[in-house]
């Protein structure tokens, strides 16, 4: 293992991204994002990200990592410092940042060929959300290949469904060996969705012929209690082939339980040039008062092509099980992304 000296003197960089997409679920979306990052001092860095997005209707299409609030919102706004005493790792992050549970960074979720949240990370699905944000402090200690991260903050989410006010604690451990990276996460927070009405519930045993589950945005009785989830994430990569997965289980509120996960296969071999291909399989089950109200699987095939002058095109085919509410069995999402950097 090698440790290189951190370079200093980098100027501030500003990234300006634009994206637009259309889904055969009759959803279209446009979005623009501005991100400024750089060094306050050679040791202290900052990151500020603002975004504006508009969707023709609420959907998880093109929702990976971004909210569609129809007004500008600040996503990240933090400063951080990383120390390397004698090969160890110690970092502090202060401000507003994404909840560091599992595979949580925007870059992981947004750029690898998918433009939909995993079901377990879409805020309508009684689990977690990529648009959870914390106002607080995040500390990472350990070594580069074995570290523990602890975040204590207050919920300041963006998007349609936000958590109740309160203090949140996230603990994450990560180990890397060879080409394998394994993480375990735990979060103690507040619920962000209300309790489902039992009469609208779906009986899992009824299988595909069952009535569709309730629409998540329907009015439901208030949920009580806090949310607690545990999860494990694994990544393996070699020779341009990445296999990764994330699995979570926990209580979104008292008397309810959600578990689910996804596996991604992402391929970018040298002969593929600017093309990246990806496959995803995922499932989710939410049980409320011992009755399943959300249960389904989804399969995605996607490709991303780097074009010239900062343009990227993405196409994906999504197949939903019939038990997933308000989703067509098959959808095609087409997106175009453009990015400029100023420094």
């Amino acid at each position: 293992m090698f440790y290189a000296t951190i370079a200093s003197g980098q100027s501030i960089a500003v990234d300006w991204d634009q994206s637009a997409g259309y889904s055969t679920e009759d959803v279209s979306a446009v979005q623009t994002k501005l991100r400024a990052s750089g060094d306050v001092t050679p040791e202290v860095r900052f990151n500020i990200t603002g975004v504006w997005g508009k969707q023709s209707e609420e959907s998880d299409a093109f929702a990976a990592a971004y909210p569609y609030t129809e007004h500008p919102v600040v996503l990240d706004a933090y400063v951080e410092r990383t120390f390397r005493p004698a090969g160890r790792l110690f970092g502090v992050r202060l401000g507003r940042y994404r909840t560091p549970f599992g595979i949580s960074s925007e870059s992981d979720q947004g750029y690898v060929g998918f433009q939909r949240d995993p079901l377990i990370r879409y805020d309508d699905c009684f689990a977690l959300s990529n648009t959870f944000f914390e106002h607080g402090a995040d500390i990472i200690v350990g070594w580069p290949r074995l570290s523990v991260e602890v975040s204590v903050g207050a919920s300041r989410d963006v998007g349609e469904h936000t958590r109740s006010a309160g203090l949140n604690t996230v603990v994450r451990g990560q180990a890397a060996a060879g080409s394998v990276i394994v993480g375990m996460s735990y979060i103690d927070t507040q619920s962000h969705l209300s309790r489902a009405e039992p009469e609208l519930a779906l009986n899992i045993d009824a299988g595909a012929d069952a009535s569709p589950a309730l629409a998540p945005e329907q009015e439901h009785p208030s949920a009580q209690g806090s949310a607690r989830f545990g999860g494990i994430d694994v990544r393996w990569m070699r020779g341009g082939v990445q296999l990764r997965g994330e699995f979570v289980t926990g209580d979104p509120f008292d008397g309810a339980r959600t578990h689910g996960g996804y596996i991604d296969l992402i391929v970018h071999r040298p002969f593929m040039g600017p093309v990246t291909a990806a496959l995803r399989a995922e499932h989710i089950t939410h049980t409320d008062l011992s009755i399943a109200v959300l249960h389904g699987e989804r399969y995605t095939a996607a490709t991303r092509v780097r074009l010239v002058h900062g343009f990227i095109a993405q196409v994906q085919i999504v197949h939903n099980s019939q038990t997933l509410p308000q989703r067509r069995p098959t959808a095609v999402d087409i997106g175009v992304f453009h990015s400029l950097r100023f420094n």
Partner: peptide, 13 residues
Amino acid sequence: KRFDLGLYPVGTT
């Protein structure tokens, strides 16, 4: 030179 270094975490080289 053609290469793909894969994923590697903070602090590693």
